[in-house]
């Protein structure tokens, strides 16, 4: 499965919850599949999806899911020790590991070669790290959201993209409606 197929499958699981979504195609795909005010779309700032979602999870009690990419986690590897050492049960980090920088044309990342993000996350001190194959993600994600423990999911999948328009929502609108959803 490619990322857009995965997002289509898990959209109903994500829908009731606060979601911070990675820059580029992941946000464009989520926006197309199920745009709603509980989604925070990153329009730039590659690497910070996990940090933004984690700050949000620490600041309030609702469940938060960060959708991240292997390339973006690699560019902000320092996030994993911070998350591990300040764990909060309402946080789930979903890394869609397609082994490539998808949004820029599927150039290979090191996560698709010798580097295991699952092993990296464990070595950083994350207690619940689950590596899962794309087709098996749904129940694993639901369990992670429902459980009281923080979970890092590394979802291995194929690289590949569909053609999509960019998000034209104004960033302040995205942020404002998201904050209203957080506070509601």
């Amino acid at each position: 499965m490619i990322r857009s197929e995965i997002l289509k499958e898990i959209a109903p699981i994500l829908n009731p919850h606060l979601v911070v979504c990675n820059i580029g195609l992941p946000s464009q795909e989520l926006h197309m599949i199920d745009d709603n005010e509980r989604n925070f779309y990153m329009l730039g700032t590659m690497g910070l999806s996990s940090s933004i979602g984690f700050g949000l999870a620490l600041a309030q009690d609702k469940p938060v899911i960060s959708i991240d990419g292997d390339g973006s986690v690699l560019t902000n590897l320092g996030t994993l020790p911070t998350i591990a050492n300040n764990a909060t049960g309402n946080y789930t980090l979903l890394i869609i590991d397609n082994g490539s920088y998808g949004s820029t044309g599927d150039q290979p990342t090191y996560a698709g070669k010798k580097t295991s993000l699952t092993a990296v996350a464990k070595a950083c001190g994350c207690d619940n790290v689950i590596e899962v194959q794309d087709k098996d993600l749904g129940p694993v994600l639901q369990d992670a959201i429902d459980s009281d423990e923080m979970t890092i999911i590394v979802c291995k999948c194929d690289s590949g993209n569909i053609k999509l328009p960019v998000i034209t929502l104004d960033p302040v609108v995205i942020r404002h409606r998201f904050m209203e959803a957080v506070a509601s």
């Binding site: 925070f40 984690f54 902000n76 911070t82």
Partner: peptide, 26 residues
């Protein structure tokens, strides 16, 4: 105050952005 050391300052600004949207002043 909740103090959370970060490993790099851009990471820290991401944490702050999330905390702000969660209703805290960062």
């Amino acid at each position: 105050i909740f103090h959370i050391p970060s490993n790099k300052e851009d990471e820290g600004m991401g944490l702050c952005a999330g905390a702000f949207m969660g209703g805290k002043r960062p």
